[in-house]
Nucleic acid binder design. Structure first.
Lengths: 221, 221
DNA sequence: CCGATCTCTAAGCGCTTGCTCACCCACGTT
DNA sequence: AACGTGGGTGAGCAAGCGCTTAGAGATCGG
């Protein structure tokens, strides 16, 4: 299931039987030299807290317990770090939406599932999501174009569910593209305001939002 | 040495009969020495394009056709510029929401009005809105606290409409605070994705969103 | 035991940043 | 004509930035 694209780091030290510590579901399990992962996690935290441009390479390296120069052994530039984070995050987001879209069940069930799990991810991993969703403009032109393409595919996955719901008579939606944008926007913005200290758990927000979105597409309960 | 705080700068040079060029409704009409306004408009554009931290004071001054040093005649720091922008923008946003909340009419009419005009503002002036809504963390502690207070009042205005709609039996909303956050989040995020080149006009997006929000609160059409 | 390799560090280079300072000039008043 | 004042500039400072380089220490096949 590992969808490492830049991958090719399976030939590193450990035997094929062993697993990356933390297992398959560990957030950044696919980032392989352990030091590279530490740097990446540190970068996510720093970028989420202060923003990409306000974060220094010294801060990232410091959080990872390393010297500033160590960063450049694993990443060519600070921008490449952001790109890696963004790429992995968008792959994960797209995977979540596609899994829901490709399930069995009514369009309403699939849309609710998509929103619920998409929102839960944005709340649970809101530090990552904040970087992934709001630091797009800090990427260089080619990297940005690559990520924009992934976002179009996310849009397509949601639109497909809504289209099918309309075709099946489950949904009443006068403006499918507009509603698709609104649904995605609503979910994504969770990462901006969600706070771990708040009253609601990620799962509760997911359930609330799934209900709100079903209302938006005109499903009667 | 006029350090304009909010208003009350009517005692400056021009006669009482004259108006600020552009009239009362001009976006930044209340910012008075003309050079200070030019700097502020330049800052809004630059912050919206590149983000606060990626924008240099030289860039701002250059866009306003002035030398870097000129900025510091009108503003103490770069952060003060952001604060001024943020303050004026939030005041305007709150004014829009309050005007809709205080109108006559059913809760549904007032909620639709609030969302329509709030979204239209975020689309029409999406450069300003982007700065106002997404650069909050770049403010210093006191300035941020001041702005956060304004946001709480915006939340209150929307919540009041929804509360009254529920009380009047117009709305069916199981979770009023959660729905309030979702509605505001939906509207605010328009400033992130809205593009002047796109198919929809600000007014059309406002109308679409007003309809979506009425569905969210369970109004049958 | 040797060199090759890989990871990491101390030091620092060249540049840009936010901001300041000494000075200038147009203009309204005397 | 002289002057004071407020908006403006050119040059530049101290600090901090992203990134590089020379080399240290650990590990390992031969």
């Amino acid at each position: 299931m590992v969808f490492v694209l830049t991958g090719s780091e399976r030939e590193c030290g450990m035997s094929a039987a062993e697993e990356t510590p933390g297992g398959e579901d560990m957030p950044w399990g696919e980032v392989t030299p352990e030091a590279a992962r530490r740097l990446l996690v540190a970068a996510v935290e720093a970028f989420a807290e202060r923003g990409y441009h306000a974060t220094t390479t010294r801060d990232i390296a410091g959080r990872a317990g390393m010297s500033p120069a160590a960063l450049y052994i694993h990443y060519k530039t600070k921008e490449e770090l952001l790109h890696r984070i963004s790429r992995i995050g968008h792959d994960k987001a797209l995977e979540i939406l596609r899994a829901a879209a490709d399930r069995d069940g009514t369009a309403a069930e699939r849309l609710a599932d998509a929103v619920h799990s998409f929102v839960r991810w944005h709340a649970e991993r809101h530090t990552t999501a904040r970087v992934v969703q709001y630091e797009l403009d800090a990427l260089g032109p080619e990297h940005r174009a690559e990520i924009v393409e992934l976002r179009k595919q996310s849009d397509g996955a949601v639109r497909r569910i809504i289209d099918e719901g309309v075709a099946a008579g489950e949904f009443v939606v006068p403006d499918v593209p507009g509603t698709t944008v609104a649904v995605l926007s609503l979910c994504i913005d969770v990462s901006r305001w969600f706070n771990t200290q708040g009253r609601r758990s990620p799962d509760e927000v997911g359930a609330l939002y799934a209900d709100l979105v079903l209302r938006m597409v005109g499903v009667q309960k």
